[in-house]
Design a protein around this nucleic acid. Structure first.
Lengths: 156, 156
DNA sequence: GTAATTAGGACTATTTTAGTCCAATATAAG
DNA sequence: CTTATATTGGACTAAAATAGTCCTAATTAC
C-alpha cells in the first residue's frame, strides 16, 4: 500500500514539534534534539519546509524556525506535497492515429480519480489533528521502512 | 504525494487487460504482447497476482492466467495490497515509564487515520472502474517514475 | 569582528526497484 | 514415454532512489 518515506515521516514529526512550540523560534539543533532526528537531517528537512512555506525562518543569531500558520490551517495534503514532492502532471503525447498507449491512458485516468479521493481525505486532516491522535484501531504503518518509528497496535 | 511504483502500474494494466479477455486463459507472453510490458516483467507480475489470489493460473500446455473474480468484485485496495505489499502492522514496544517515542506514536496514530481514509476511497473503486475511465480533470500522475506511461492532461 | 544560525548545494553510502535469467514442475498432445 | 508449451520458484545484477552527511556562503544580534 502507499507508504510515506522516512524523511516525510521525520518532516511531519518536526512540524508537530513546532506546533507544540507555538510561535517560538526554534533552531535546527533544538528541533533535532526535541524530535530525536539527526541534526543534519533535521536541518535539511527544515530547509525544505521553509522553502515550501510551511514554516518561516529567521537567519542570524537568535534565528530559527517556526510554523508559518496555525496548525489547524495546515492540511496533511500540503505537508505531503511539500515533503514527498509537488504535483506533477505528465502530458500525454497523444498523436493522431493509432495510440499504442490507449490502455495506459485508461488506467492513468483512473489513477487520477483515486488520487482525487486521497487528496480529499488528506485535506480533511490537519497538523492539529496529527498532534492529537484519536483512539482509532491501528491499521497500517505508512512508513516504508520498518525501522522508522513504530506505530502502536491495539493490545487485546 | 503518494506514488505507485512502475511495477504496480504495469500490474494494474495487466489486470485491466485480463478483464478485457473475460474468462479466457492467456499465457504470460500473450499478456506481455497485449500490454506492451516486457515478457519477463509480465511473467513476474502474473506470478505475484496469482499468489495473491487476484488471478488464477493453469499450468502446462494450453495453460495461462485469467482473473479470479468478476472485475466489479476486485477493489483497487486489493490490487495495491497485492502489488505494493501487504498490510504490515508494526508493533510498538511501549514499555512502562518514559517513552521517548511518544511524539512518534502520536504521528503514527494519525497516519493510520489517514490510511483508513485512503483505504475507504480505494475500496470504492474496482477493476471494472479502472477499465472505464471517466472524464475527470486529471490531477496527478501517481506513477513514481516520469517515464512510466504518461497520463493525459486536459488540453484546453 | 565574533558567534550563532540559516541557505545552498554537493557528495556518498545504503536501500529499493526494475529487469532479467534459469532450473524445476505440470500438463496436453502425439 | 517423449516433446512442446507454459507456470512456479527463486536468484542475480544494473539502475534508480533514498538517507544521511558535510561544507561554504550569507545573514543577523551583540
Amino acid at each position: 500500500m502507499f507508504r510515506i518515506s522516512r524523511l516525510t515521516d521525520y518532516g511531519t514529526l518536526i512540524l508537530v514539534f513546532l506546533a507544540g512550540q507555538e510561535r517560538r523560534l526554534c533552531s535546527a539543533s533544538e528541533v533535532a534534539t526535541g524530535t530525536h532526528v539527526a541534526q543534519p537531517t533535521a536541518q535539511k528537512l527544515l530547509k525544505v519546509l521553509a522553502k515550501t512555506g510551511l514554516v518561516e525562518s529567521a537567519r542570524g543569531a537568535d534565528g530559527g524556525y517556526r510554523l508559518a500558520r496555525n496548525p489547524a490551517l495546515i492540511t496533511t495534503a500540503e505537508i505531503l506535497d511539500a515533503l514527498d514532492g509537488p504535483v506533477a502532471i505528465t502530458e500525454c503525447s497523444t498523436d493522431d492515429g493509432d495510440c499504442v498507449l490507449e490502455p495506459l491512458c485508461q488506467v492513468g485516468s483512473a489513477w487520477q480519480k483515486i488520487n482525487s479521493a486521497i487528496r480529499v481525505a488528506l485535506s480533511d486532516i490537519t497538523l492539529a489533528d496529527l498532534g492529537h491522535p484519536q483512539a482509532n484501531i491501528p491499521e497500517l504503518d505508512l512508513t516504508r521502512n520498518k525501522d522508522a518509528h513504530p506505530t502502536p497496535v491495539v493490545d487485546h
